[in-house]
C-alpha cells in the first residue's frame, strides 16, 4: 500500500498548527476532544486496478497570500466516478479547476506542482489549452447554457473548433455539415438523457428549459467535444430532488465511458454515485482518499469521521 511512487516523506506535510501527538501506526488516532491530527500518507494512497487517468502530485495553489491548496497528491482512475467532498472553502473546487487549468483565468492564482493527464504534464510550457479543455470538460455549479437555441448550444464547441462547418460561407459552397450536426446534437442529447424531452424544440432558446434540463444540456454540451474526463462542480446543488436523481443516473451511465470527477456537498450523493472519495478539510489539505465504501463506513482519520457524521465542518 505504501510502496507506490507517490509515497513521500512525512516531513513534507509539516503543519504549523500541529500540536497533537501523532501515532506511527496505521490505525487512526484515538485522542479525544482533539481534532488535530497528522495527515497520514497511507490514508491518501488509494490503490486501484488499472492505470491512473489523472495523476496529481504536490499541487499547491495560492490566491495572493491565501494558501488554498496544500501539497495535494492524488491519482484518479479511468472510467470511474471520483467524488471530492469537504466543507465550504476547503479547496475542492479549486482543485477541480486545476485539472483543466481553468484557474489560469484567475489572475491572482499561483499554481505549483504537477498534474499529468495520461502521463503528459499539463502544467508545462507549450501545452495546448484548447486541446486540454477539449479532453477535460467541465460542468458548473449553476446551469449556464448560452442564450442561444438548444441546437446551437450543443454545436457551439465543435463549430468553434472547426469540426463542424455550418457558417454562411460553408452553406454557400455546399460544404455545410448539416447531417453531421444533427447527428452530433442527437447523440449528445441522448447521452445526456435529454433527447426525449427536447427533440421537438431544438430551435427554442435554451434558457426556456427547466433548471434540471438546463444542467443536462450543459452536460450534453460538454460531451459535444468528445472529452475523456468530465469535471463537475456541484452539478446538482441548484436542482430539486427529481432533477438531482436524473443527473445522478446520468453520471452513473457516463462513468462507463468517461472519467468523472465530481465535487459535492451532499454526502449521500457522494456515497451513492462515486467509486472513490477524496475528503478535503479546512485549510486546503487532502485528508483521506479511498474507496467510497471505506470512507463512509470506516474512515482512517478521526476528522473525516467527524465530518461525515456531521460533528464538524
Amino acid at each position: 500500500m505504501s510502496d507506490t511512487p507517490q509515497t513521500r516523506q512525512a516531513s513534507e506535510v509539516d503543519e504549523p498548527a500541529e500540536t497533537a501527538p501523532t501515532t506511527t501506526t496505521t490505525t487512526r488516532t484515538t485522542t479525544t476532544g482533539e481534532s488535530d491530527e497528522r495527515v497520514r500518507e497511507e490514508w491518501r494512497d488509494h490503490e486501484f486496478a488499472g492505470p491512473a487517468k489523472l495523476s496529481v502530485e504536490d499541487l499547491n495553489v495560492h490566491y495572493g497570500d491565501d494558501h488554498a491548496l496544500k501539497d495535494v497528491s492524488i491519482d484518479i482512475p479511468e472510467r470511474s466516478v471520483t467524488a471530492l467532498i469537504g466543507p465550504s472553502g476547503c479547496g475542492k473546487s479549486t482543485f477541480l479547476r486545476c485539472l483543466n487549468r481553468m484557474n489560469d483565468r484567475v489572475s491572482s492564482a499561483r499554481i505549483e506542482g504537477s498534474v499529468t493527464l495520461d502521463d503528459e504534464e499539463i502544467y508545462q510550457e507549450g501545452v495546448n489549452l484548447v486541446e486540454l479543455r477539449k479532453r477535460v470538460g467541465m460542468v458548473f455549479q449553476s446551469p449556464n447554457p448560452f442564450p442561444k437555441s438548444i441546437r446551437d448550444n450543443i454545436s457551439y464547441g465543435p463549430r468553434k473548433h472547426g469540426d463542424l462547418e455550418t457558417g454562411l460561407l460553408a452553406r454557400l459552397l455546399g460544404r455545410a455539415d448539416e447531417d453531421e450536426r444533427e447527428e452530433l446534437v442527437e447523440r449528445c442529447l441522448r447521452d445526456a438523457a435529454l433527447w426525449d424531452e427536447v427533440n421537438d424544440r431544438l430551435d427554442d432558446n435554451a434558457l426556456g428549459l427547466s433548471g434540471g434540463q438546463q444542467q443536462r444540456l450543459c452536460i450534453a454540451r460538454c460531451l459535444s467535444v468528445d472529452p475523456e474526463v468530465i469535471l463537475m462542480d456541484e452539478p446538482a446543488s441548484a436542482l430539486d430532488p427529481i432533477a438531482t436523481a436524473k443527473i445522478e443516473d446520468l453520471i452513473d451511465e457516463l462513468s462507463e465511458e468517461y472519467t468523472v470527477v465530481i465535487v459535492t456537498h451532499n454526502m449521500q450523493q457522494a456515497a451513492r454515485i462515486s467509486d472513490q472519495t477524496a475528503v478535503f478539510l479546512t485549510g486546503g489539505e487532502l485528508v483521506e482518499y479511498d474507496a467510497t465504501g471505506k470512507i463512509f463506513e470506516n474512515p482512517e482519520s478521526q476528522r473525516v469521521e467527524e465530518y461525515i457524521s456531521g460533528k464538524f465542518g
Binding site: R105, L132, F146, Y156
Partner: peptide, 8 residues
Amino acid sequence: DASAALGV
C-alpha cells in the same frame, strides 16, 4: 467560463 471549458 462555459465557453473556455469547451476549449474555445
